[in-house]
């Protein structure tokens, strides 16, 4: 109840009722669908806990309950899925983080010269950089990975003679190499776009103050550019996490690799459900954290 206005003694008009329009019904039906799916998924996944819980409870049960509990335990011939593969998922998760982290880092280092070459006035620099970026952005990551893993594998004698075979022999190094090249092309474009976005006035102002070009770039242009680039960088990290799932195809036990291994041994569909839950959690957490960081770093820009 809202109190009447003390001055006029008039009550405010009642809030408009929201009638059951078609949109409202559709919305509720869809939400019910999501809720039911969510609850179903939860009970499905919690089924894992039945055996350990009953085993814990067994000493405290008696009579009918004891019989029921031991019957239920007997139906589980093997340990629960989570009991058997939980550790594997954790190690797979760590491998995924390692792949993504290293690739992003190397990619970032590589992207700086590429972006510089790409915005160079000299065609001899800008043309190859453009081709590089176009190639890695225009072809599927999976095809690039195959090209590097299986393609370079066939040049073993040549690679051995220049002492690089140890690198290309290892699937893990290959995937880091492939992903780094791929992300460096995307990051170079992000960087270039952000630097170009800074108005000429900033350069001119610095020049008027007598600052040298490198100082201007690192102290004035780059900090502003990184601010602009925050959002696309966040998107690139998420793309990389999602893309890293294809490492599983070339014998690496990342999160997806462990998932496939668990599925191929049990044919239990929850293998994929767990992977989906974990990937969604990573991506959502990262997105939220990144939003926070962005809001904090750009708080002086809010008008």
């Amino acid at each position: 109840m809202i109190a009447p206005n003390p001055r006029t003694g008039l009550k405010p008009p009642p809030l408009a009722k929201r009638p059951w329009t078609a949109t409202k019904i559709t919305g509720h039906v869809l939400m019910a669908f999501w809720a039911i799916s969510g609850v179903y998924l939860l009970t499905y996944l919690l089924g894992n806990l039945e055996k350990p819980i009953l085993e814990l409870a067994l000493p405290f049960l008696s009579g009918e309950w004891e019989v029921y509990a031991s019957d239920r335990i007997a139906t589980h011939k093997f340990d629960s899925f989570l009991g058997r593969y939980g550790d594997k998922y954790i190690s797979g998760f760590l491998v995924t983080l390692k792949i993504v982290g290293l690739s992003l880092l190397f990619g970032a280092a590589l992207s700086i010269p590429i972006a510089a070459a790409r915005s160079s006035k000299w065609k001899i620099l800008s043309r190859p950089a453009y081709a590089y970026v176009y190639f890695f952005r225009g072809t599927p990551l999976l095809a690039q990975t195959f090209l590097i893993y299986y393609g370079f594998g066939s040049f073993r004698p040549e690679l051995q003679s220049i002492g690089l075979w140890w690198f290309f022999r290892d699937a893990f190094y290959c995937i880091i190499f492939a992903f780094s090249l791929n992300t460096s092309a995307y990051q170079a474009e992000i960087l270039r776009g952000a630097v170009q976005n800074i108005s000429r006035g900033q350069w001119e102002g610095a020049q008027a103050l007598g600052l040298s070009k490198p100082v201007t770039f690192f102290k004035i242009i780059l900090p502003q550019a990184l601010m602009v680039a925050l959002r696309p960088y966040g998107n690139e990290i998420i793309l990389m996490i999602k893309g890293s799932a294809i490492a599983a195809i070339i014998t690496i036990y990342d999160l997806m690799g462990e998932t496939r291994r668990a599925y191929s041994r049990t044919y239990d569909f929850q293998a994929y459900i767990w992977a989906a839950v974990i990937y969604l959690m990573i991506v959502e957490t990262l997105r939220r954290v990144w939003d926070r960081i962005e809001a904090r770093l750009t708080r002086h820009l809010i008008r």
Binding site: G138, A143, F146, Y150, G151, F152, F155
Partner: peptide, 13 residues
């Protein structure tokens, strides 16, 4: 593999 995966990349390009 190098030839054919290279071709695949070029096709996508």
């Amino acid at each position: 593999p190098f030839l054919f995966f290279g071709i695949a990349c070029l096709i996508y390009l």
